[in-house]
Nucleic acid binder design. Structure first.
Lengths: 201, 201
DNA sequence: ATGGTATAATTAACAGTGTTAAGTTAAATA
DNA sequence: TATTTAACTTAACACTGTTAATTATACCAT
């Protein structure tokens, strides 16, 4: 009975091999400049083998991004345990989100900029990791409103405003590293602080 | 002596024809889904003719982008003349900026996301239109601070915070069109309003 | 151990891409 | 009218993602 399991294990192993080859190439050379043949040759399989494990190139990208999202989610969940005050949690979470983006800039862009472009009609599916990340943000914001710390704007909008701010500054810092930014941490803190203040007022 | 001029005029005319055919296709079908052959057939020339006028497909998109950025700049300059109150001007400018991004998502992404990545070490080039757009923002923010409407944060940081907000929401709306956003205009207004409030407080 | 079977991986091919080199047509000059 | 020059097209190359058909491999029952 162990044979089927070993087989499944081997299959999973190859899947992971494809996945990590794809990530490395996507990150280093850009999604568009990476062909299925290039990925295949990296792992020394024929190009079509990949199609036995992933529907198409976009699906492969999607799987790579799911992994990234999972990493992000874990980073955030870690914070939830340690902090009680919702505003403080929101601040720290925002910082953590941005820090994650800056630590893995190419993975961040792959997930939040490239993937949507090539996975047309991508929505936040129920149960998906992306949904969970957003739910996490949603939850904190929700608490801030319940405790009457934020003014009465509906939860959805408030969360989306917060997301816009952190997403925006993350991408700007990634894409224009040579721009004369004010000191990085200052900028990040000011973005978060300003947004939170704006939501209070 | 008029012949050379007529020829030059005709050449410029075809260049414009290519440009506007490309714009229309890029806007309607997305840069990735538009082939050189498709553009060529739209203007009833052979595909290779385009290469007599533009270096490659990226250059074609770049030219489209420059034109539209110029439009944006003109739109903003118009606002400057019509509105006196700096806060009101900032609001309207933010909305115009976002509206531009949503109308020409490929242009916007090319300028502010894709190009910086592939032209490593690229700053907003001195004299470029992108730079001028940022300078414009800088100028308004500067006035808001001078008039003591905004709290005392230095001009650079304030401008960058504002940019982060509009950049963020623009990209999110472009990249996740199927996300369950609150009504688009509501979100945009709230982002701008929140950021401005946060900068006042 | 051998024949059959399911599964995994490959080869060959299609229709399309951006782009270049070579060839052709048309127009302006001498 | 012949020649030069500019504009444009044809044919081709080296790719791309992806599918159908085919081969090789590993397992199972006899």
């Amino acid at each position: 009975m162990g044979i089927k399991e070993r087989r499944a294990r081997e299959k999973e192993q190859l899947r992971q091999q494809i996945l990590s080859a794809a990530r490395e190439l996507f990150v280093n050379e850009g999604y568009e400049n990476v062909s299925m043949r290039k990925i295949a040759s990296k792992i020394e399989y024929s190009p079509t083998t990949i199609y036995l494990y992933f529907k198409d190139k976009a699906d492969l990208l999607d799987s790579v991004c799911q992994e990234t999202l999972l990493n992000l989610l874990n980073t955030l969940e870690q914070l939830k345990r340690d902090i009680n005050d919702p505003v403080e949690r929101l601040k720290k979470s925002g910082r953590a989100y941005i820090a994650f983006g800056l630590k893995y800039p190419q993975d961040y862009k792959l997930t939040f900029v490239v993937r949507p472009q090539f996975q047309e009609g991508l929505r936040l599916q129920e149960g998906s990791i992306g949904k969970k990340v957003f739910d996490y943000l949603h939850e904190i914001v929700s608490e801030c409103i319940q405790q009457k710390i934020f003014r009465e704007v509906d939860v959805e909008t408030t969360g989306q405003v917060m997301w816009s701010a952190v997403h925006g500054v993350t991408l700007l810092l990634i894409d224009f590293p040579d721009f004369p930014w004010t000191e990085e941490d200052t900028l990040i803190d000011t973005v978060i602080h300003t947004t939170i203040q704006g939501l209070k007022a």
